[in-house]
Amino acid sequence: MQQFNGKNKEEFVHGVFSTIAHRYDLMNTTLSFNRDKYWRRYAVKETNLRPGGMALDVACGTGMLSIELAKLAGTSGRVVGLDFCENMLAHAERNIEKTPYKNNIQLMQGNAMELPFEDNFFDCATIGFALRNVPNIEKCIDEMRRVVKPGGRVISLELAKPSAPLFKQLYYLYFDRLVPLLGKLGVGKDGPYQWLPNSLKLFPHQSVIRDIFTKVGLKDAIYHELTGGIVAVHVGIK
């Protein structure tokens, strides 16, 4: 299994997402059996974002979580979607143009390791299906904590590790064998979707991520397991 550190991981992940950007949304829906929409709605509900609020969506990808945030922030609110991959941002722009929130979502290119915002700026910060991909999980979460106002929430929506024995075996069989195959059929290239199961194996258990939330100073850190524990939503309060 390939492992990375720092800049090498950034470059590799950038290449992966540049390759799959054109099929990212379709593959997410297909591989999750259409559960990804529910997962995003659940995560956004946990932000406690109110109409007129300001939200940051870190590693926003194609903008689907940013759009869900904009639904809560409303026409008087603002959502900033930040990603380091130009191809993903281009697809995000097209997705957002189809919504009533195109004037309320600002997209920008940037690095999750060094968020280009002042302290205590946003009402909440989210990251969806990207914490596995950052070079330093603790630094990313700490950066999100830094830019959120006191009382605001940091939310991570991410793949998790189910514990039920039979379900766990079936899940990893699907992830290890079928996901790379379906990914190859979807994007027409072998390799990019092999990163999905590999990245999950390298990613810490959801209890460890909760402890990292606590370590960086987020209060009342908790996680919610969804769909049998294949996904976890972590919540921490500044």
Results as ranks from 00 to 15, higher is better:
G6R: 10
D25E: 07
S156L: 14
C140Q: 05
A43H: 01
E93V: 08
N120M: 04
I155H: 00
M144V: 05
Q169N: 12
M88N: 02
M54L: 14
N34G: 07
P192V: 08
I141T: 03
N198F: 09
G15D: 12
G53N: 06
T47N: 04
W39S: 01
H205S: 12
L89I: 01
C60F: 02
G217M: 06
E118F: 10
G191A: 12
I96L: 09
L159E: 04
A92C: 02
N48D: 10
L173I: 08
S66V: 08
D36E: 09
G217R: 09
V148A: 01
I209H: 03
M108H: 11
S156Y: 11
T29H: 15
I237G: 01
K98I: 03
I96C: 05
W195N: 05
F17G: 00
E68W: 02
E225A: 11
F129P: 00
V134R: 03
E97F: 15
V44D: 04
F117T: 09
K149M: 07
K45H: 10
R132T: 06
R145W: 04
L202Q: 14
A232Q: 02
Q206I: 09
M1Q: 12
L159A: 11
L166S: 14
N87H: 12
L89E: 00
H22A: 13
P150K: 13
V44Y: 06
F129R: 00
L218C: 10
P197H: 11
T75P: 06
T29Y: 15
G53H: 05
N5W: 13
P135V: 06
A59C: 15
E138F: 11
G63Y: 00
K9R: 13
D119C: 11
Y171W: 15
M1I: 11
V147W: 02
L166C: 07
T19S: 13
V134A: 07
R132G: 13
N48T: 14
G74P: 02
S163C: 11
F175A: 14
L56K: 03
E138K: 13
K238V: 02
P150S: 04
R146K: 14
M88I: 01
A112P: 05
H205C: 12
K161S: 13
E114T: 10
E93H: 09
L178V: 15
G151P: 01
G151T: 02
R50C: 10
G15E: 02
T75Y: 12
N34V: 06
L202M: 11
N136R: 14
R50M: 14
N28E: 10
L69C: 15
R153P: 01
Y38N: 10
P100E: 08
R132L: 07
L31V: 15
N95L: 07
V216W: 05
S163F: 15
I209L: 13
N104F: 09
K201W: 10
A125N: 10
G191E: 08
E97T: 03
V235S: 01
G110D: 06
F203N: 06
K238P: 06
P165H: 09
M144F: 04
N104V: 01
V216M: 04
S207Y: 10
I105L: 03
V44W: 02
N28Y: 04
G6D: 15
R210E: 12
L26C: 12
S32M: 09
I96S: 00
L65R: 00
E158F: 07
I222H: 15
V79R: 00
N103Y: 09
L202H: 14
Q169T: 14
K45P: 07
V58I: 07
V154I: 07
M27H: 08
R177F: 13
L65A: 08
L131T: 03
